[in-house]
Amino acid sequence: MAAHEEEEGGVAAGEAKSGVGTVAGPRQAPLAAPLVEYLLRLGDDRLILGHRMSEWTGHGPILEEDIATANIALDLIGQAAQLLKLAGEVEGKGRTEDTLAYFRDGVQFRNCLLVELPKGDFGDTMVRQFLFDAHSVLLWEALAGCGHAGIAGIAAKALKEDKYHLRHSSEWVVRLGDGTEESRARVQRSLDRLWKYTAELFAADEIDDAVAALGVRVDAAGLRARWDAMVNEVLARATLTRPAEGAAQRGGRRGRHTEHLGHLLATMQSVARAHPGATW
């Protein structure tokens, strides 16, 4: 009798059950320690963007750009390696920068959506890079003086690199915007398409509050204002129109990504995952 009740009871509709096996769950999977989450966000942004940039190597519009894009990819992946290494150390579970890069699934990545979008044409790549670089330079400026020695050290070095990236990407935005009719139309379209992904760069949440308490403090509103001014200045020189603020796309910081990330990771992680435990 009891056994029979079990069988039916398991699927019986409307029958309230309590205790073990409760079906009510939290709205979101728990996050890691705030500093780990924060470092993963910084590191994953640069790893994924660096990977996208590296896709240009050997396929650029001019030879000089093959060299420049490779350089930018190298800087970004170098920054990512340092940030992920630190994330692994803070986490204290023995994960290295390589375990974090190669043995997490997409939903465990914390990068913003902007960086994972396909590289598109050269204009898409440069507009994306410009929007990101402008934010990154301001962020590193703030973090270079923050109260966490490890982050401050990485920020100081990365700031120098990203200032060069910003000069490079903003010059291209101006050239392409104020170039030919075709080029202006193309980069305006790039800008219009990418704009909805920029809000995520500024979206602060409880992780930012928690790391601020640890001395990793960024004035988000001030940063946004300076970013607006920088972007407006370059877009004006480029004779491009700043898109209106519309519905924003976000989710990357919680692992809700676009479908593109899975394909990127399938490629990036393929060799490492085919040989787990191997040394390269």
């Binding site: 190298l74 170098g78 490629t267």
Partner: peptide, 10 residues
């Protein structure tokens, strides 16, 4: 895009 470690990729 498939280099198996970050050091090798760089």
């Amino acid at each position: 895009t498939r280099a198996p470690s970050l050091r090798r990729k760089m």
